[in-house]
């Protein structure tokens, strides 16, 4: 009997392993290999199509003094912080509004996902035409309302980054809504009932019960969006091309310029490894919070 059970267990185990094979192969080929290869060529002075010369840590030393890359990292951080913060606030507010079971809310939940369905490239092209300084609808109405946008939202240095952050918020807030809505729906009812009996108001319920209970979900949502925002490239490439000046040049755009325009793939690999480290640090901070006692 025992042997039969053991045999049956092994068979099940084998079946499970079969299921894991495709994803393991996928991860090895499309994730691990590129990462390792990128780390490898980061140690070479390699121009696309040219010869490779081992230069040790020279690319990383160059990166530490590369003003354009360091500035692009700062721009990236500003982008991530502003975009994700606003997405979190809007996401939480909208999730709260949609957290009721009726037909209208179900329809609204479907519609609110529409921006996320757009590929960032298409979203960028649509917004670029809306932002067009001379002919864009957004520029037209802002000017009609008497708002000073100078020469235009995407051509003024102090407005361009804000403009692309708005696009990111428009596109990705719905994702935040869906994650937080799932979190809200899973919250237990008892603490609310007890608090209401004790006379807690809506604000107290939100800050004393909803937010603490929702904290793990909030952190997961922040982690997903922060890492995604850290990789931003397409909407900025399409809308501003990194300009005006360097005002919207995020790290990925700088890496792209070095790798694809200047064909310095060795140095571009080192830069992207630098960005990878930043991403890992951001991820670890969130993971630490998620698994902390409070989380």
């Amino acid at each position: 009997m025992y042997l039969f059970q053991q045999k049956s267990f092994d068979k099940k185990k084998r079946t499970l392993i079969y299921f894991l094979v495709p994803i393991t192969v996928y991860m090895l080929v499309f994730f691990l290999y590129p990462v390792l290869y990128n780390l490898f060529i980061g140690f070479f002075d390699l121009k696309l199509g040219g010869t490779a010369e081992f230069v040790g840590l020279d690319n990383y030393r160059k990166m530490a003094g590369d003003e354009q890359f360091l500035n692009s990292l700062i721009t990236t951080m500003v982008f991530v912080f502003c975009a994700v913060s606003v997405e979190l606030i809007f996401g939480l507010a909208i999730a709260g509004l949609l957290n009721s079971e009726n037909k209208k809310m179900e329809i609204l939940r479907t519609f609110i996902l529409i921006p996320t369905v757009f590929t960032p490239l298409v979203a960028g092209l649509v917004w670029k035409s809306l932002y067009h300084p001379d002919m864009g609808m957004v520029s037209y109405y802002l000017r009609a309302l008497g708002i000073n946008i100078g020469r235009g939202l995407i051509v003024e240095r102090h407005l361009a980054l804000l403009s692309v952050i708005i696009v990111d918020v428009w596109e990705w807030t719905p994702l935040m809504v869906i994650i937080l809505l799932a979190g809200l729906k899973s919250l237990p009812k008892n603490p609310y009932e007890a608090a209401m009996i004790d006379g807690a108001g809506a604000v107290q319920l939100f800050f004393r019960i909803t937010v603490p209970l929702l904290k793990p979900t909030l952190l997961v949502a922040l982690l997903i969006r922060s890492l995604d925002a850290l990789k931003v490239f397409d909407i900025i490439w399409v809308i501003t091309g990194g300009g005006p000046g360097t005002s919207t040049t995020v790290a990925n755009l700088r890496i792209y310029e070095v790798g694809m325009n200047q064909l310095q793939v060795g140095y571009a690999a080192a830069l992207s490894n630098g960005l990878l480290v930043v991403g890992i640090i951001v991820g670890l901070i969130f993971v630490k919070f998620i698994y902390s006692k409070e989380g």
Partner: peptide
């Protein structure tokens, strides 16, 4: 130049 010219590529300039 028109206010948006700072963002002009060739086709934008020709359109202007």
């Amino acid at each position: 130049a028109p206010s948006g010219a700072i963002g002009y590529w060739w086709d934008d300039r020709e359109t202007a």
